[in-house]
Design a protein around this nucleic acid. Structure first.
Lengths: 207, 207
DNA sequence: TATAAAACCACCCTTTTGGGTGATAAGCCG
DNA sequence: CGGCTTATCACCCAAAAGGGTGGTTTTATA
């Protein structure tokens, strides 16, 4: 299997280099590093990567969220935000463009790899026609009490094998919150372990 | 959904009655109780149940294992053995007829329910064409080091949501043994949790 | 029959999950 | 406005699963 090509968008050369080297050493291929949004868009047009990691805060007038908007409207690939702590307004803007994940600085390198892998595989499985993605309507048809959007989202992550701590890191919510959601999901689906949740979802999707 | 019909084959009326009452109170329907093998076969011919629970040791000349032989050759339903501790020879004979599970006396009632449910659902999923059962050849194609038969069997149980303690009760092997097998399976499949094992098996079956 | 592979089991310790309870904040709606 | 739902989080405890190590017995087979 060939390596996944990753575009890095990061205005701080030291950080960009570090990430690049780390990815190259771990079965990814860094297709390019863009230091501002113009370069990023050039790269996206020239050579579509399999995923993009981008800093939210760039020096240029356009930031990572703007680039995300471009990606969403023009191409079909997953992207993750690389970010230090931000104000609520920025976070809200970031959420609105539906990133596949967030990586919060300072991050450890394993987190980076895991987030990337999860983002790419989830994104791929959403598209994959032979392996039908979870369908919230279809699932809810069979339930007395339907799943909420958030619950469905978390159920989907569990369905794809993501652990609670990975969910926590990717989505900025605490382990406790995830556990609370899962308890509610388990009630609605009538299961009591995460692997039985997976099995049940598989069953419901095959009905 | 209508209830699953269960045939009980047990020569001890007190035990048979207890099981019957408990199943009736828990979303199963006891279609009949047979006190010997002749009655059992009559019932099987008259009114096919969804599953059979039968004592291995019956007073009559034919025992539960003989009935199992009849089931295997004539009809297509899952059956479980109800048994107290037996000699090795009997156990070997029992294993040879491929029961869907064993319930060891004294058993607690929840064990009984769980075993039944698992037996029926696994049996159903083996047949189910829309939801392809696991295929050992297909799985092993993708592995450097193939699963053994036993490992594949355990992987299948995990795939269907069965817990370690349920496996232990159904198959007469210790929790430690199961854990050892699972460790080896995880190595071969390159995962480290049972839910990631499920996800991986799903992926491999969809390739 | 020697040898290797497979199946079985135990102990220890850590990590992850699950279950119960209670609480707060935001948004919706009659 | 007041109640309802949803999403968020905390704390506690118990159960289950995972990782490491080392061992014995069975079975297949060269």
């Amino acid at each position: 299997m060939s390596k996944f090509k990753i575009l890095i968008v990061e205005d701080e050369p030291v950080i960009a280099e570090n990430i690049s080297i780390y990815l190259d050493n771990n079965d990814f291929e860094v297709s390019a590093i863009a230091y501002d949004s113009d370069e990023a868009i050039e790269q996206l047009e020239a050579n579509t990567p399999d995923a993009v990691i981008m800093d939210i805060n760039l020096e240029s007038e356009q930031d990572g969220i703007d680039i995300a908007g471009y990606i969403n409207s023009k191409i079909h690939i997953p992207f993750l935000f690389l970010t230090s702590y931000s104000d609520k307004h920025t976070l809200d803007r970031a959420k609105a463009v539906k990133p596949s994940g967030y990586i919060v600085k300072p991050f450890n390198e394993k987190t980076l790899l895991a987030s990337l892998e999860i983002a790419i595989s989830n994104f791929a499985s959403e598209d994959n026609q032979t392996q039908p993605a979870l369908d919230m309507e279809k699932i809810n048809q069979h339930l007395l009490s339907p799943l909420t959007e958030r619950e469905f989202q978390l159920a989907g992550l569990v369905y794809n094998g993501v652990t609670n701590s990975q969910i926590s890191e990717q989505h900025f919510i605490s382990l406790n919150t995830i556990k609370t959601h899962l308890k509610n999901i388990y009630l609605k689906l009538d299961v009591n372990t995460r692997y039985n949740l997976i099995v049940r979802l598989r069953q419901l999707m095959n009905k």
